[in-house]
Amino acid sequence: MLGEHLTQEQADEYAIGSLEPELERAIALHLAECPACRDIVRDAERLAALLAVSQPVRRASPRLRQRVLTAAGIRKPGPAWRAFTIGRAAAGLAAIIVAAGAFSGMLGLRTQVNALRSQNADLQRQIDEALSQKVALAALTQKLEDQEAVAAELRETLKSDSELFIALISPSSQVAAVVSVDPSRGSIGRLVWDDDQKRVWFVASQLRQLPPGETYQLWVNSGGRYYSLGTFAPDDAGFARYETRLPEGITSYDTAVVTIERAGGSPTREGPAVFFVTDLSRLTRN
C-alpha cells in the first residue's frame, strides 16, 4: 500500500483515476498532509490534463455560449458590453464612410475626409475611455450588491452559528470529518454530535445539486443498525448545514453515512453512499 511518500507510479495511477476506491481515499488523505507528494501528484495531474486536451478538438455550438451565460446568471451582456459593441460598430461604420469617400476620387473632399478620420479616431478614444469607466463602475456596483447580500445572509445565520459553536466547544460533543467517496474531493465537512443538547449538526460544502426526485439522506449506524437522521439539500453554492435531534434511545454511534435516496427520504438505507464519516477517534474530544 502506501509508504511514507507516494511513488511516481502511484501518483500517475492516482492522476488518471485508475486506482481502487480504497487506495484513492488513502492517497487523498495523505495528500492533505504531505506537500511533497502534492507536488508529485500535481505534475502527474498536469500530464493527465494534457492527455485530455490532446484529443481531437471539436467545436462547441455557438448557441451554447448564451445558454451557459444565462445558466450562470449573466442574463444580459450588460450596458458596458452593449456600448462596447455598438461603439465598435459605429466606429466601423464611420470608417466605411470615410473609405467610400476616398474611393470616390473626389479629391476636393480629401481634407474633409482627413478631418473625419481624425474625428473618428478621437471619438474612438473617447468611446474606449468611457467604456473602461463603465466597466469599472459596473464591477464596483456588482461587488457592492454581492457584499450586501453576503451581509444579510451572515446576519441570518449568526444565531444558528452561535448554537453550533456551543456544541463545538461542549466537552460532551464529538466532532468527526465527513469524507467524500470521491477521493479527489477528500474531507468536505464535519458531523457534530452533542449529547448535552441532544442534537446533531451536519455541515458540508462541495455538494452537487441532485436532480428532481432525489435527496441526500443522513444515517448513523449504532449497534449494527442504521437510523435515519433525515434528509437535506445543499444551497446553490453546494453548502449544506443540517441540524436535527438525536434519535430516541441512541446515545452514541459507530459510523455515519450520507446516501442519495428518492425524494422525501427512504425508511431504510437503499441508495448509494456519497459521503461517510471518518477520523472519529482523532477528532473525538472526550
Binding site: 467545436r59 451554447l64 451565460l69 458596458a80
Partner: peptide, 25 residues
Amino acid sequence: LERDQHAFAVLYDRYVDLVYSAAYR
C-alpha cells in the same frame, strides 16, 4: 472572483472547445 463578467466570457471562449471535446470524448 471580483465578478467580472467579461473575464468569464473571455475564459469561456478560450477553453469551451477543449472542455467540450474532453466531455464528448
